[in-house]
Design a protein around this nucleic acid. Structure first.
Lengths: 116, 116
DNA sequence: CCAACATATGAACATTTGCTCATATGTTTT
DNA sequence: AAAACATATGAGCAAATGTTCATATGTTGG
């Protein structure tokens, strides 16, 4: 069949990820690219937490947290466990921790040795 | 004075990054959270490139690339080197590579073993 | 110096995003 | 069963975002 549809793209790109992968990557990093969500992820590094406690820790509304948790779950970054009235969220991906710490290193380096 | 303004926040947060750091982290990851920018960063993993070539590789306008490169440079992720008419951009942060590959792993895992 | 080229930048515009508010769903307690 | 509590969700809205278009700036070759 016409497997030359994106041949042209693949040929010159030579090992460059296809558009679809770049799109998925961007979607993933978007999850880290909001202070509320990165706060949630960071909080969950220390173990699971329920929605209300997350809201209190981050100082924002329960609804906002819930909305963001839905996105994080859709991305496969967190999972939910229901226990009575509460729903406890936990990290569901090993990469979160390493991505987070790499980002933290970058941010921390910028804190001092900046003016060369 | 009232130095207890964010005392309450700091006390219970206990090791949780201050709001400012979370904000900076989010700003950093935002740079990875757009398919154009992640495409640029990915391209630069293989070495420096000029604006026009980036635009062609990514299949978008020169202006769009230029705008995004400005953001990437402001974030300290890329640096620019002028050579004649051209400006060559290169990665300027060791963490880009590891953040990128961690993200790629996450994306690739989602490609198959998804329906448990 | 002028034309062609490479990049940068500002303005305008459409889209996306993240919050709040109101309300729905589900659970425990009395 | 009713009240109190925890979470989820849809609508609406204001702010942020990314692209395009037009144009400015700077560079090389004739």
């Amino acid at each position: 069949m016409n497997d030359n549809i994106n041949k042209e793209a693949e040929i010159k790109k030579d090992g460059f990820p296809p558009t679809e992968v770049l799109y998925d990557l961007a979607e993933l990093f978007k999850m880290f690219g909001d202070s509320t969500r990165i706060g949630i992820l960071c909080a969950l590094l220390n173990g699971e937490m329920c929605v209300y406690d997350l809201a209190e820790l981050l100082g924002i509304g329960q609804s906002a947290v819930s909305h963001q948790l839905r996105l994080l779950r859709a991305s496969g970054l967190v999972r939910a466990r229901k226990d009575g009235k509460n729903v406890y969220y936990a990290l569901d991906d090993d990469h979160v921790s390493s991505i987070f710490s790499q980002g933290m290193e970058h941010v921390m380096e910028g804190k001092h040795g900046d003016m060369a």
